[in-house]
Write a protein that binds this DNA or RNA. Sequence first.
DNA 1: TCCGTTTTGTCCAGATACCGGACAGACCCC
DNA 2: GGGGTCTGTCCGGTATCTGGACAAAACGGA
Lengths: 269, 269
Amino acid sequence: MAPAKNSDDDNQGRLTGTQSIERALLLLREIAAHNRSGSRLLDLATRTSLQRPTVHRMLKCLAHEGMVQQDSETHRYFLGPMAFELGLTAAPRFNLREICHPAMTRIAEATGDTIFLTQRSGLDAVCIDRHEGTFPIKTFTLEIGVRRPLGVGTGSLAILAALPEEEFRSIINSNEPRLQEHGLNGPTLLSQARKAQKLGYALRETPTLAGVRSLGQVLRNQSGVPFAALSISAISSRMADRRIQELSTLLRNESRLIERQIANGMEIR
Amino acid sequence: MAPAKNSDDDNQGRLTGTQSIERALLLLREIAAHNRSGSRLLDLATRTSLQRPTVHRMLKCLAHEGMVQQDSETHRYFLGPMAFELGLTAAPRFNLREICHPAMTRIAEATGDTIFLTQRSGLDAVCIDRHEGTFPIKTFTLEIGVRRPLGVGTGSLAILAALPEEEFRSIINSNEPRLQEHGLNGPTLLSQARKAQKLGYALRETPTLAGVRSLGQVLRNQSGVPFAALSISAISSRMADRRIQELSTLLRNESRLIERQIANGMEIR
DNA sequence: TCCGTTTTGTCCAGATACCGGACAGACCCC
DNA sequence: GGGGTCTGTCCGGTATCTGGACAAAACGGA
């Protein structure tokens, strides 16, 4: 006789003896998915379909251990220092540069243009890798390590546009003063991001450099949170509408591969 | 009547109804503390004082959820992709640059020299921030964003020297081919790191630039894993033995503050 | 300042999900 | 191919977790 099927959906991979750990991790994912504004106890209970007292008890434990932290004023829950530190410890095995290396090489070879890898860092984005294409006419070269407000580069714009509405607005707002030194302003950036949201990728003429177009594709983690982007840039004559279609497809496919690779926890090194 | 006191040690802050979550987090910390070489089931059971079957059941769940991953060949357990992603999500609230900013300003003002913040990234270290001191004679300026093999900068050397013996050796080994372009080699780096381990801070004459000395102090997370470093550099005439004592104390104190701040989960932004 | 509403925090008896002793299976080395 | 070491699984008893019910705090409108 089949075991009493839980009324839940397809929970085929049922494990036994781990209910509360599963629930705790479910909570962590839920908190992570709303980490910008934080989560209230009641919302967490609703979203996870758990009872309030259960959620509360678990959160108290998770907070005690530093996995989450509760803002003492608003009572909202956020990911805590231990989550951050576990991430730092895990990072060497999930080195984004190394993971993306083959994909970037493939794209650079297939297109002949220059590819950039950009990682989000708070209100900014940092260029963490670059692969030069073979095409002889090079566009401006963004140096590895350059840190600029979110939305300034095209990869950066793709990340910004992919953030949840509230976070998105608040970042543009916070960064507004710093934008003008990059030839941008809040409203312009906002409309560019809206366009990127519609297209599914970021596209723009580099504002400071006429005759250059670039294309950015966001990378998301399993919870859908954007954390990095691939971008490609070339002189406009190599970026006609038709080719943009091809390039965006190429970028999207490679991005999916990378996302899947991180999710599957491939071995690095 | 007092509740039957558990035979365990001083568990004053006892929470109830969260035994298995506490145990799961204990496991995660234990795995994190040995993430380089991975942990065997039996070792985890021993180190956590839990029963093997219990550990196994929990690990199966944690692996299922992606918090840990098991190497299919060696059966060893490592932190998994979800740990990495939670870290990425938590990162904006624990932005190292922002956290360190005030400390770096203080040090730069107190000393007049230039301060660097270096973060580990896999086999490399990246300079993620720099504060110029007021002293008119500047030393070479390491650019923000520069990525070099672990051990090449002085902050970087401090991180390397603080790693567990096995990881330490294996990194020097892996990086050996890349070291010579920075005027270094494996044996030299090894002896420099040994010296740093004895002193508790890294100290060296910049190999490529005579007349400059620099000092590096590692930053560790709560589990003791090194992940970044503060360093300071100046012309040798400003780095006599006596002043080195003062500077190293200053750096150490500020580092402790930063470590504590991250541990306490201070609010950023 | 008061009272109704909303949300967070706590208690405890009941039941069920977890624990862990015991066993089976995989692997390795000699 | 036998002895040792390690990983993986089973299942009964019970310690642990659950969640209904209640208390306390926060909020906000009048």
